[in-house]
């Protein structure tokens, strides 16, 4: 039983750390840089911040 509780706490802790770091990272603005749109468009990564910014600009 203690083992199960430790497992749940560990998972919750790591989730907390991860999402926390994600939120913190999103708050730090990226320095402006020029991106090659053609290369960027070919990539299918969902988590790419540059891509989101590009689509917002458009």
């Amino acid at each position: 039983m203690t083992e199960a509780i430790i497992a749940i706490i560990t998972v919750a802790l790591i989730v907390f750390i991860y999402i926390g770091s994600y939120v913190l990272n999103r708050r730090v603005p990226a320095p402006y840089q020029k991106v090659d749109e053609a290369t960027c468009g070919a990539c299918s990564n969902y988590a790419c911040g540059v891509k989101q910014k590009l689509s917002e600009e458009r």
């Binding site: 989730v15 991860y18 999402i19 994600y22 939120v23 999103r26 969902y46 988590a47």
Partner: peptide
Amino acid sequence: EQIQIPAFIV
């Protein structure tokens, strides 16, 4: 909205 992607990963 702001924590959607990490929540999905979880």
